[in-house]
Amino acid sequence: MWTSRSGKEQSLKTPLKTPLTFFSIEKATIVRWTRPTGHWKKLNVDSSSWGNPGAGGGGRVYRNEARNLIFAFQNSYGHVTNMVAEARAMIDGLTLCKDMRLSSIIVETDSRTLFDAVTSHSNSCSWRLWYVLESIHHLSQSLNLSFSHILREGNFVVDGLAHIASNSAPNKLFLNIADLPRPVRGSMILDKAGVGQIRHCRPKKGIS
């Protein structure tokens, strides 16, 4: 019940005809790249492509427990699908580790699909991808690997390298931070300092 200006009591039994729209408050979390511990090193991999399939490229960064860069690499892959580019970025990184006689490696990707494919040993994929996955499994037998999934915000360094490579940039090896492209260098410095990136969660919309 409520009282109108005329002093008469009115009823609110009639439902509102206009639906109410509710918005939740946007949430944000901090995502950090975490350093490996003990005798482990970490290899982060990522890819980028303009279309699926489209012009693609891959990046990988290898760092030690002190957050120091051991090497970084960018590769252009030509016309590929997203998943093939992701898998090739991983196998190229592992091949380079083998050539450099490195082992005890945490391989980290922000592709949940690739992570699941590698850790589940699934055969339900295209023959091109299956061939690359088999090569990854073969390399894992000699390199002592552990696989990890990371959110994209914690993988910005290799994401930047992959994006540059997908624009038909030449293949390039980097052995120190100063040689990295400027945007990638900035992300690397933040990772080394332990500073995270902001991850925004999309607000949910509801109608009642």
Rank of each mutant, 00 (worst) to 15 (best):
M1W: 06
S6L: 09
K8D: 14
L12V: 10
P19C: 01
T21Y: 07
F23C: 10
F23T: 08
F23W: 14
F23E: 13
I30H: 08
R32I: 00
R32D: 04
W33N: 05
W33D: 04
R35T: 10
P36A: 04
L43K: 07
L43I: 13
N44D: 08
V45P: 10
D46I: 04
G51P: 00
N52M: 06
P53L: 08
G54W: 03
G54Q: 01
G57P: 00
G57L: 02
G59Q: 03
G59D: 00
R60F: 15
V61N: 14
R63E: 12
E65F: 13
A66T: 06
A66G: 09
R67I: 05
N68H: 11
G78H: 01
H79E: 14
V80E: 04
V80S: 07
T81Y: 02
M83L: 11
V84T: 15
E86I: 07
E86M: 05
A87M: 03
A87T: 01
R88K: 15
A89H: 08
A89S: 09
A89C: 02
I91Y: 12
L94C: 03
L94D: 06
K98V: 09
M100C: 09
L102I: 13
S104F: 14
E108H: 06
D110T: 12
S111I: 00
R112N: 09
L114T: 07
F115E: 05
S120K: 02
H121D: 14
S122I: 03
S124R: 15
C125H: 15
C125Q: 15
L129Y: 12
L129Q: 11
W130G: 12
Y131M: 11
E134D: 15
E134M: 06
S135M: 09
I136R: 05
H137Y: 08
H137W: 08
H138K: 13
H138M: 13
L139E: 03
S146V: 09
H149M: 00
H149T: 01
I150C: 10
L151R: 15
E153G: 05
F156N: 15
V157H: 03
V157D: 01
V158Y: 11
V158E: 05
D159Y: 14
I164V: 10
A165R: 02
S166P: 04
N167V: 02
A169M: 01
N171L: 05
K172F: 01
K172E: 13
L173N: 14
L180D: 02
L180H: 04
P181C: 05
R182G: 01
P183D: 01
P183R: 01
P183N: 00
V184Y: 05
R185W: 05
G186V: 09
S187R: 14
M188C: 08
M188Q: 04
I189K: 06
L190M: 13
A193M: 07
I198K: 15
H200G: 02
R202Q: 12
P203Q: 09
K204D: 12
K204Q: 13
K204P: 07
K205L: 13
S208G: 11
S208Y: 14
